[in-house]
Every structure is written in C-alpha cells, then in structure tokens.
Design a binder for these strands. Structure first.
Lengths: 146, 146
DNA sequence: CTGATATAGTCAGTCGGGCTGACCAATACG
DNA sequence: CGTATTGGTCAGCCCGACTGACTATATCAG
C-alpha cells in the first residue's frame, strides 16, 4: 500500500522541471549551455560574485566552479571583472546574454507552475508548496538561497 | 512573494533522501557502491531482467547499463545467468549481498518518512504525498516503476 | 615592520558515468 | 533461406566532478 517513496516522487518532479526548462532554453537557440553551466549561471547577477563563493553556494569545488565560469565566459553569458576590494579576487558578473536566458528560464518555470496548479487545483497546489517549504527546514538546514 | 520554485524544493528534498540513504549504506560498510550502481541495483530482483530492459527503465544506454552491471557483478551485488528463453540474452539477478543493501535502503527510507511525518504532521504529510502522486501523472507520463 | 598564516584562484591529473558508432551473435520472419 | 531485428559488447569520446600542489595577495601577531 505504501506507494512510491516521496523522495522518488520529488526526484521525478525535479527532473521534469529541469528537462522542460532546459528544452525551452535550447529551443530558443541557446545551444551552447550545458546543464552544469546553467545551474551555475542561475546564481549570478549584476552584483558579481567570487568564484569561491559561487562554489560554496553550488556545493562544488572552486576548481569546478572556475571551469564552469570559464566556459560561461567563452560563450558570453558572463564577464569577469577585477574585484576593487581585493586584488586577488575577480567578480563574476552576469552578461546581457546571460540575463536573457535567466528571464527565459523564469518564464518557463512560471508556466510549469501554472500547469501544475491547473492539474492539482489551487488548494492542493498550495498544500504542496506549503509542505515542501516546511520540509526544507529539515532537509536543507544550511539554507541555500533560491 | 512567489517563493522558491517547487521544482527547486523537490530537488532539495530528493537530494536529501539520496544523501541520507547513501550515508546509511556506507555506514553499514558497503563502501564499494557508487550512486550510479545503487540506482541501477534498485531496479533488480530475483526475477531477473535483461540489460537492455534495465537500460530502458533507467533511461540510459545499454552500454552504460552494461558497464554498471559489470561493476555490480564484480562487487557481488548481482549475478548474471543465461536467459533460458533466448540464447542471446542474459538475466541480471539480484544476489544476497544486493538484497541486504536493498533492505537497508528501504529501512532508511521508512525512517525518513517517519521523520518527515513528525515534522509536518500526519495531515500535511498526506497532502504532500497526495499532491506528488497526482503530479506524477503529468511529469512522468510513461510511468516509471518504483 | 615583518614573518606566519589565511584566502582567491589556477594548473595538472584522475575518475565516474554518461554518450555515439561499429560490430557480433542469435533470433524471427517473409 | 536470406534478411531484418534484437541482445549485448568493444572502442573511443566528453563532461563535470574530485584531489593535490602551487602562486599571489591579504591579514594579523609580535
């Protein structure tokens, strides 16, 4: 009776979202963005961030983060500028091309939410969101930012 | 207001489950099981399955599946026996050592469910499960088995 | 001030786990 | 039968993680 484990169901849902967003981005002609690049780029803004900090947030090594940023730079999704407050560091800043993709991705995410709400009904959708947020308190104690 | 996207929240939850189960398995001394091997092994039973079929279910190529089965066999988690109904094929069958790990993993999953239920309360937990199952209808139309 | 330590980042090398393409062996079928 | 299909392997590639060793700058204690 138990049915599939909620962890598996969440995995399926998460995979669906990633696939659909990635398809939308690809369909819009951004064919040089790998999933790993996209995941890193999602955390960038005009503000700028250091490679080390990015690595911590994404929970990868700074070497991996550095490699991803390099690719992103080559494809003109980001730029690297010197950090005025520390000569050792450089800030990774989102570039216009990167912003476009971020906007696109967010639009697709909103579309997914609408689809889900339509399928579940507003009430169950709210309950889902509520439970997921509450669960995060114990599954992600170190609070990664959205 | 919008809050984090449900897809991201599901990703966090799924990652938590995978990590915790994998930790439990490791702590029990099964240190030669990689995540990919474990994912493949989860789909095996005494019944036996062909590599090609396993590949389809896991959505990887038969070459990848074949490599994983080879590793699993080397570590004595599975055995390969000839398929009596087709001389080309061989059946991948779970071995005793593999069964042990499966039992261990299921036990940990149940523990996670208890923890989650305690944190959310029975009602919200049920609502979560309900919504996730319903959502699967549109996020996994080709119905992968648990 | 200076020397020790910490921090930002890179270089080099490894590994796991996906992928494609080419291929072999057995089976099924017109 | 001969041809197409199917189960599976072999070979080679690539991406994205990892560790370890290193440079350059910053910071802090004495």
């Amino acid at each position: 009776m138990a049915g599939p484990h909620p962890g598996l169901l969440m995995f399926i849902g998460a995979r669906y979202v990633e696939q659909r967003v990635s398809d939308a981005v690809l369909a819009a002609g951004y064919d040089d963005l790998t999933p790993a690049m996209a995941r890193a780029a999602a955390r960038l803004s005009e503000e700028g961030i250091r490679v080390t900090e990015l690595a911590e947030q994404a929970r990868i090594t700074k070497q991996s983060a550095s490699a991803l940023v390099e690719q992103l730079e080559r494809c003109r999704y980001v730029e690297r500028v010197p950090d005025p407050s520390d000569a050792r560091a450089r800030l990774v800043v989102i570039a216009p091309r990167g912003r476009e993709v971020q906007r696109l991705a967010r639009r697709e995410e909103r579309a997914i939410e609408r689809d889900w709400a339509r399928h579940l009904g507003a009430e169950r959708m709210a309950a889902l969101q509520d439970a997921l947020v509450a669960l995060r308190e114990i599954t992600d104690p170190y609070a990664e930012r959205a």
